[in-house]
Design a protein around this nucleic acid. Structure first.
Lengths: 217, 217, 217, 217
DNA sequence: CATGAATGAGGCTTCATTCAT
DNA sequence: GATGAATGAAGCCTCATTCAT
């Protein structure tokens, strides 16, 4: 999985291709630095060093540090949303799809370790360091992702795949688990470990941890 | 619930009591500002303004901005650990205790909204903005809290209260849910709502979301 | 003549007096540097060096370089307008008053050499380097000064002290001469020289340079 | 009236002619930008954009921003000096020639609005932003122009066309008026207006604004 | 103890100039 | 000749920290 730059595989003049490549290099360097040091603490000097460009060059591609961050987040979120949608399409059982979704997220977390660190670092307090529009943009992304799961859960419920529980609670639980995975669990050593963990997660999510004679609804 | 300052209720000379009170006021002001603006973006000017002390005075009580943050986090984490321990003592069923733990966390989140924002904002990338020792201290706190749950889960498993699942998975799930609550769920309007949500959470955690014919273990 | 700082001679607490004094010192240093190097080319490093304060200190007194400039210009223009008004009060003949006005300007130019350099440097192209409001503020000052002369000239004309010429032309001529003095003529060696020059100026202004048989109106 | 480029009308090879044309285009673009934004605030990016050449190309024709400015000023001043000389040749009465000179300047101001803005913006403080040699070059031009008037005034005085006044004062007054016109008066709506104003100016200059019984010399 | 003015290192950003294509 | 990406010095501004009162 790679940073998606629209103009990637097209047959553009060399100059254009190089520009796109450099832009990508800068973004990737920034992602590493932002993840390592935190968005606010990271300096453009560090990004420039990591990108092996001079600091001034960054400004040929991004109008400011904030613009750089937005481009990274935008790129990532579109990537995530697309990936989410593909995993959850309502064509199989909710459980199967949720399993795939978790695996996808696990893969995502492995492939985009640094990106996830940035996103999660931005979750709460970090927002306030951004401009009004920046916050709104990020919130919109977040909500879009929640909605995908909520819609799918609603359908699953209608089809009788789920117990009679408040949909929000279900979605919340799923999201919490996903967040949990994204935030704390990316430190599985291998993707294989992570995938096995997903099986258990899904098991727990659907069957609970209790010895389970007490099913109610 | 209040910030616990060791020298609170003791019978100290007036000077000492005043000093302790001022220290507390500064910490509480800092918590509000850190939560509102993010730890890195917050300035000591803002803290001083909020505390209604001069900037210089802060340095009479704390040796640096980082020291101020550590004291806040230390204080909070001791508070949390104590509270955790009280909720999970192994004297009732794991489910009951977990329920109480979640309720406690919910209460915590309501009473210490700002504290939670700081902690969660510091979770990942933020750590790296701190000094080596700072990070280690925070990590130790975190691990300690994990350990409490892990120990209790192990015991519950021995007593047959839990399905045959990897203990780490169970703990991880619980922790993920707690994190999820702490991070995203403190925006329940009322504590009552939050408590009801806890019931559902516990239900899901123990019984799963599935229609449940497929119990395995 | 000195920079007018409102709180100058009042009995303020020492802290306040010192603050006002430092503010004044910074402004005066800035005036010297702005005059020497041009407003745009001057750096705050130079101002700080000249003021014998650190660069950061400047920001305790002024919110930005532009703010510093505005305060200087405001102060100066109020000074000038006041001085203008005093010189031209309509109590004697226009010629006498104009003479005094020119002398006053000459004195001003001697006492405020640097200030004048800044003002005149800002006259034209420089405006565009300022913000919208900055330009408007400066323009307002300029117009106010023009108006004072225009009003007085109108009165003088009514009293029959002037030839039948368009008032704007007269004002314009006077203003041009004043500008000329301010811009190019402050390099008289001594004030005495300047004052003598004023006599000639007034003579020319009222009687012309021609051998003068040809008076028309 | 056009920018005079020495190699303009000669029969040069196409390459040479093109080079000269590009050079001229860049200078004219620079003049517009310098006038609009001020010399210091203007960037070569803006000049390049206005000239519709790339930034690098400018350096093929001029060795630096300062060099570009000098060439512009040189060009202009030679233009002005030539024009001055033509207007003031000592073949008619001083008054007539001065009248023509003012009209010429008025025309100049209309045709070279932008050039004048640059020159006047550079008059005083701006000089110091230039290198030593730059300043001297500009000063020399200035003095040359003063000298032309001074010489002619001397001759006029000898011929009895002028009152017995210090020559410097007369020259100064004339120059001041010219400056005044150049600086503040180019905002006549039409050249016609400006020319009428010149008549009044000359009238005032020669006959004064006073009711004029008091002729002395 | 408390104050807040002063400091200066360090961050973001701009822009004249260079250079490989 | 022409281009425009790359550079890095330098400018403005912020803020944690110190210190004299």
């Amino acid at each position: 999985m790679e940073l998606t730059t629209d103009s990637m595989e097209e047959n553009l003049p060399r100059r254009e291709r190089e520009k796109a490549a450099h832009r990508k290099e800068i973004m990737e360097a920034a992602i590493r630095v932002f993840a390592r040091r935190g968005v606010h603490a990271a300096t453009l000097d560090e990004v420039a060093l990591e990108a092996e460009f001079s600091k001034g060059t960054i400004y040929l591609y991004f109008s400011s540090k904030e613009d750089l961050l937005f481009n990274i987040l935008n790129n990532l979120s579109q990537n995530m949303i697309t990936t989410f949608r593909e995993a959850i399409s309502g064509k199989r059982s909710f459980k199967e799809e949720l399993h795939d979704l978790f695996v996808t997220i696990a893969e995502f977390s492995f492939n985009y370790k640094d990106h996830m660190k940035i996103v999660t670092g931005q979750h709460v307090a970090g927002f306030n360091a951004l401009s009004k529009e920046g916050c709104e943009k990020l919130l919109k992304m977040h909500n879009e992702m929640v909605k995908i799961i909520l819609d799918r859960a609603r359908e699953a419920f209608r089809k009788g795949e789920l117990r009679d529980l408040p949909l929000e609670a279900i979605t919340s639980m799923i999201h919490g688990s996903l967040d949990g995975m994204a935030i704390s669990r990316w430190n599985f050593e291998t993707l294989e470990e992570a995938k096995q963990a997903v099986n258990v997660f899904i098991d727990i999510l659907f069957n609970g941890i209790g010895k389970g004679k007490e099913k109610k609804s």
